[in-house]
Design a protein around this nucleic acid. Structure first.
Length: 307
DNA sequence: AAGACGAAAGTGGTTGA
DNA sequence: TCAACAACTTTCGTCTT
């Protein structure tokens, strides 16, 4: 799962390969090392079923939603352009033209602005390209359905990004999104829920393990501590300690325990800060872990070793 | 002095009548 | 729509290292 290869951008060694999504991602900076593999992942346009007639959705050159803004603003209106396009781009063109009829110029402007904002936030968070594109796509859907009305454009952008992150299991916390977009956390959460519900996007509850790598690297913890944390997490899940709880809190607690056991002590505050939860939450989770998981033995072992 | 721990009260969101 | 409820936070006092 983890490679010894180094990230070409930040030098981090915590690379993550995901075969379903055909990516190798640096969990520290989000750089996609290799995205040339064929996508085996889920059909992420599944919720477009309302537009019915399109059956050959994934043919032709890969389409990038993030480039659509350029297309929308300029070429699409000109019907003559149809014949200048290569056959590869036909499909793309048809889609664009359909939108052209469907959406007003005001919405186009909105989209253009929004996608620019989306790119800004996305690059601030160093999100992988895939996520950025999915977010752009979600936002486009949201605009088409008029879900932006009564909400600030920026908050919907953030909501779309958050949803995209969740879908691709490269979770960022609401706090991080909030910092990057200067939108209030609760506002992002609200629009996120609203948009996903309205668009019928199903999001699998985020897995605490997805946070481990990122938290661990910002805490500068060793690799075996990381894997120990994942191990703890798994048994915690087995003990049904994870349902209903905030995933970040659990991830943080697991990391905290793992660090203790490997003699890489971090204070609760340090862990709490990077995880975006409070010490209290860590303590609660931590206590539960100790209670239910007979981890106290291992902890005591570690303490003895120290003396 | 700093960190860990726990109690108590408050907040925002979900759920179910 | 409202009230009960669970999870999490904030705050604060006490204990431990």
């Amino acid at each position: 799962m983890y490679f010894v290869k180094k990230c070409s951008e930040c030098g981090s060694q915590s690379l993550f390969i995901n075969r379903e999504k055909g990516e190798i991602i640096c969990k520290d900076c989000g750089l996609v090392i290799e995205d040339k593999m064929v996508e085996f992942g889920q059909e992420w346009r599944e919720f477009e079923d309302d537009s019915g007639e399109e059956s050959r959705r994934r043919t032709g050159a890969p389409m990038t939603y993030t480039q659509y803004d350029q297309g929308l603003g300029t070429e699409v209106g000109q019907k003559a352009d149809l014949f200048q396009l290569g056959s590869k781009d036909r499909n793309k063109f048809f889609r664009l033209r359909k939108w052209q009829y469907r959406i007003s110029t005001a919405i186009e402007r909105n989209l253009k602005l929004a996608l620019a904002e989306l790119k800004r936030v996305s690059s601030f968070l160093k999100l992988p390209k895939m996520v950025e594109e999915e977010a752009a796509m979600i936002y486009t859907q949201a605009v088409q359905r008029g879900l932006v009305r009564g909400r600030s454009m920026e908050s919907v952008v953030s909501g779309a990004l958050y949803a995209a992150c969740r879908r691709h299991e490269v979770p960022r916390t609401l706090d991080e999104l909030s910092e990057a977009s200067s939108i209030e956390k609760k506002e992002i959460g609200r629009t996120y829920r609203f948009v996903t519900r309205e668009l019928g996007i199903t999001i699998l509850p985020s897995n605490p393990a997805d946070y481990i790598a990122r938290f661990a690297s910002s805490l500068k913890l060793a690799a075996d501590t990381q894997s120990k944390a994942v191990e703890i997490l798994e048994s915690a899940q087995h003990e049904e300690l994870t349902s209903g709880r905030g995933p970040t809190g659990i991830a943080a607690a697991a990391l905290y325990v793992a660090a203790l056991m490997h003699g890489e002590k971090r204070t609760q505050r340090e862990v709490a800060d990077v995880a975006g939860v409070t010490e209290v939450t860590i303590r609660n989770r931590y206590k539960e872990l100790l209670d239910r998981l007979k981890l106290d033995k291992e902890l005591k072992k570690q303490k003895k070793k120290k003396r």
